[in-house]
């Protein structure tokens, strides 16, 4: 009898263990169910490449939003990736372990700051700075990129530090024994060995930047148009969904879910890339 009870426990746990994958499938299913019919009816190419978004007149082109999302993400990476990787390298190679043991948790603690707070700081501090020094309305592509660049720093630093920490000490010792300076050892040996983990951290950060909503709504200005300079206000895919969802019905609502489908696909591609990069590190 006892053995059969143990069997039952095993199957119960198996069923529970499938809850995450079941949730993922449910999410994919319902987002696709709501959005895909619209995309097919409206025409995928027309949906993705035209730049007219006038929901009340039946024009649903999301090209300006896609371009804005891409530029903001690229800008955020331009700021976040060098700063984050530099921070990770400095903390793991040039700082005593005791200091690193304080600073790394502090940075991870800061990852918990709500995104609305980052957005608010963007509005109150960064936007006026941009407005007075560079011109434009302040709430702009540039402001969103800077705020997102700061927001992804904890992600990049935390994962990169782990990747650099996983490089065997013998690699460093070998390089130093050959007469390399510490920096040469880091640049030529450690960074090469930790490369895939660092790349994974940057891709994951990209996913966060593409998917971020509230902070972007607050600082990006939200005008629907294709940006020609970094100082113009823009609207991203995520912002478009969050701003218009509450008032949307019918076709308009379906078009917003279709925007969600585009976002979902982009994020899944980025996630898969990051996981592939991590696995390569694990495989060796």
């Amino acid at each position: 009898m006892r053995i059969s009870g143990d069997k039952i426990a095993k199957y119960v746990f198996l069923a529970i263990a499938c809850s995450a994958i079941a949730s993922l499938l449910l999410i994919a299913l319902f987002i696709l169910l709501e959005g895909l019919p619209f995309i097919l009816r409206y025409g995928p190419w027309k949906f993705l490449s035209t730049s007219d978004w006038r929901p009340h007149e039946g024009a649903f082109g999301i090209a300006p939003m896609i371009i804005s999302s891409l530029w903001i993400t690229a800008g955020a990476m331009l700021i976040g990736a060098p700063l984050g990787v530099a921070g990770a390298v400095f903390l793991s190679e040039f700082v005593p372990k005791s200091v690193m043991c304080i600073i790394k948790p502090t940075i991870e603690l800061l990852a918990g700051i709500p995104s609305v707070v980052y957005g608010f700081i963007g509005v109150m501090v960064l936007a006026p700075l941009i407005r007075t020094n560079l011109g434009g309305p302040g709430l702009s592509l540039l402001a969103a990129a800077v705020i997102l660049g700061i927001m992804v720093l904890p992600t990049i630093i935390s994962i990169s530090v782990d990747a650099i920490g996983a490089v065997p000490n013998a690699f460093r010792e070998g390089a130093l024994a050959l007469g390399a300076t510490r920096w040469q050892a880091v640049r030529m040996v450690v960074l090469k060995a930790a490369r895939s983990g660092i790349i994974a951290s940057i891709i994951l950060a990209m996913g966060r930047a593409v998917g971020e909503t509230m902070a972007v709504i607050m600082v990006a200005g939200n005008t629907i148009r294709t940006p020609h300079s970094a100082l113009e206000p823009v609207r991203t895919l995520t912002a478009n969904i969050a701003i218009e969802m509450s008032a949307a019905t019918g076709m308009h609502r379906q078009a917003l879910f279709a925007t969600g489908v585009v976002l979902f696909v982009v994020i899944m591609i980025l996630n898969s890339l990051a996981m592939a990069a991590m696995r390569r590190k694990g495989g060796r």
Binding site: A17, C18, A20, I21, S23, L24, L25, I27, I31, E34, L204, G207, R208, V210, G211, E212, T213, T238, I241, A242, M245, F257, G260, L263, F264, I267, M268, L270, N271, A274, M275
Partner: peptide, 18 residues
């Protein structure tokens, strides 16, 4: 299961909202 868990972790909150 692990793949599903990792994917779920990367999904942005707006998608959960939708």
């Amino acid at each position: 299961i692990r793949f599903g868990t990792d994917c779920l972790a990367g999904i942005p909150s707006i998608i959960f909202g939708l």
